[in-house]
């Protein structure tokens, strides 16, 4: 049965789009049929991170408004043939999204895919509320930083009240994904610890993605990090997270960066 998953956060810049691309690709690598949808109408970026920016013809708004058929707007990934993208419109704004239109598109996608990943825009306005509206599960992307944790808490409150599932008295399955985690800074007590974040948000942990050059490198070349360098630390963390989403039990590993003495000395000199 298809599962609709919203990747959300409230705060911008925490890694929603990167995480949508990485988790979507990881699920597809596991053999699942996956579509990732960009809900950030007017500020689309999932196409860029997925490396499909030059192949966008029709978009979510065209489908919602009946201008294009769903099949015309879906873009198949060039690396994985069971991974698809439904891009956002770059020229319209979020008011072009309607509840009914989104409901129809999601219902149609449910018949065709195993996973429907909705990349939410930042904020708590129309785009964000519609991205979460029909979700069965949610990944709340959180950085170990006060403003991000506060916004995640707000989003969790919305998932529990504004979604169709919540209105029917059912639960949206919620997971916290901690991104940009720096183990050295957490050890020194300079960054909120994993335990602090989980205790405050009272939501189970899906994974811990380390702060890493590999994430930037992957988005530079337009490839989800799990495809670009599957052995890198962030890719391994995303692959583990995707397996947990699929119901596997995978031991949680706190990513610790191993620095050689030479690297440490170089860094000290540079600083």
């Amino acid at each position: 049965m298809a599962k609709v998953l919203v990747v959300t956060s409230g705060k911008g810049g925490v890694g929603k789009t990167t995480s949508t691309a990485a988790l979507g690709a990881a699920l597809a690598q596991m053999g699942e049929k996956v579509v990732v949808i960009d809900f950030d109408v007017g500020l689309r970026n999932l196409d860029l991170v997925m490396g499909a920016e030059r192949r966008v013809v029709f978009d979510l708004i065209n489908v919602v408004q009946g201008v294009a058929k769903l099949q015309q707007a879906l873009i198949r990934d060039k690396r994985l043939d069971n991974l698809w993208l439904l891009p956002a419109s770059q020229t319209r704004d979020k008011d072009a999204l309607t509840d009914e239109g989104v409901r129809n598109v999601i219902a149609d996608l449910r018949t065709k895919f195993d996973w429907i990943l909705c990349d939410s825009p930042a904020g708590i306005e129309r785009g964000a509320t519609l991205a979460m509206r029909y979700a069965d599960a949610a990944v709340i992307v959180t950085n170990p930083e006060v403003s991000s944790v506060r916004d995640s808490d707000r989003i969790i409150g919305m998932l529990d009240s504004k979604t169709v599932r919540a209105e029917k008295g059912e639960r949206v399955e919620k997971h916290v994904l901690i991104t940009r985690y720096d183990s050295a800074r957490a050890t020194r007590g300079e960054m909120l610890s994993i335990e602090d974040i989980l205790e405050i948000l009272a939501t189970p942990l899906l994974g811990i993605i380390p702060e890493s050059q590999d994430v930037l490198r992957a988005s530079n070349v337009g490839s989800p990090v799990t495809l670009n360098n599957a052995d890198s630390m962030p890719a391994r963390a995303y692959i583990d997270a995707a397996r947990r989403l699929a119901g596997e039990s995978v031991t949680m590993v706190v990513p610790v960066e191993r620095k050689s003495l030479i690297n440490r000395l170089l860094r000290r000199r540079a600083a």
Binding site: E145, V146, V149, R150, D153, R185, A186, R188, G189, E190, M191, L192, S193, D196, I200
Partner: peptide, 16 residues
């Protein structure tokens, strides 16, 4: 020396 993380946690708990 101790980091600022405990302060962050306390402020968040009160606020939330």
């Amino acid at each position: 020396r101790t980091g600022s993380a405990p302060v962050a946690r306390e402020r968040l708990q009160i606020l939330l």
